[in-house]
């Protein structure tokens, strides 16, 4: 019976949620939308063929293709001077491409409990959003999401990898 009941799950699991979210792919899992797409962390930034207004175009604003992201200190959600400089460039870009909307993903390194890191990722993403809107970008163009420590950009247990994972990534929707 218990077994029978459980076998029912397979059938009904797909009947997810009493809501009408348009899509359960991409952003839901975060695969391919976590800022990893600009990947290689920028080694060999593409040149020439970048489509204006695209994610690659945004990423190319910064050295090594990291123009789409800012990095944070350990357990901090306030922007660094370098981060503010990156966001200044992003704001200019967003003014240039006024039709583009973005989602700011907040990420943490692995040091920290899962739930705290979700809160910390939210604080980081919100710090990015607040900075961009303070520069005049319409708040309706900038959404936030926190992945906490669920989507590290790189794997490893060193200050170097952790510092790459503590990030706010601006993703073109």
């Amino acid at each position: 019976m218990y077994v029978k009941l459980l076998s029912l799950f397979a059938a009904v699991v797909l009947v997810a949620a009493c809501e009408t979210a348009p899509s359960d792919t991409g952003a839901a899992t975060g695969i391919g939308r976590t800022g990893l797409t600009t990947g290689n962390n920028g080694i060999g930034t593409s040149t020439g063929s970048v489509r204006p207004g695209s994610q690659d175009d945004l990423a190319s604003l910064g050295g090594q293709g990291t123009g789409d992201r800012v990095f944070f200190q350990y357990d901090r959600a306030d922007l660094t001077p370098e981060g503010r400089a990156t966001l200044d460039r992003q704001a200019g870009w967003l003014r240039q491409y006024g039709q583009v909307t973005v989602t700011i993903e907040g990420h943490t390194d692995e040091r920290g409990t899962r739930e705290y890191n979700i809160g910390l990722g939210n604080s980081r993403a919100t710090a990015v959003r607040n900075y961009l809107t303070a520069l005049g970008i319409d708040a309706n163009r900038v959404a936030v999401i926190s992945y906490g420590k669920e989507r590290p950009a790189v794997l490893g247990d060193s200050d170097q990898t952790w510092s790459q994972n503590r990030r706010g990534v601006t993703l073109v929707n």
Binding site: A16, A17, E19, A21, P22, S23, D24, G26, A27, A28, T29, G30, I118, I145, S146
Partner: peptide
């Protein structure tokens, strides 16, 4: 539980 269904946690 927490779900990212529809891209919203």
């Amino acid at each position: 539980y927490l779900s990212y269904y529809g891209g919203k946690p």
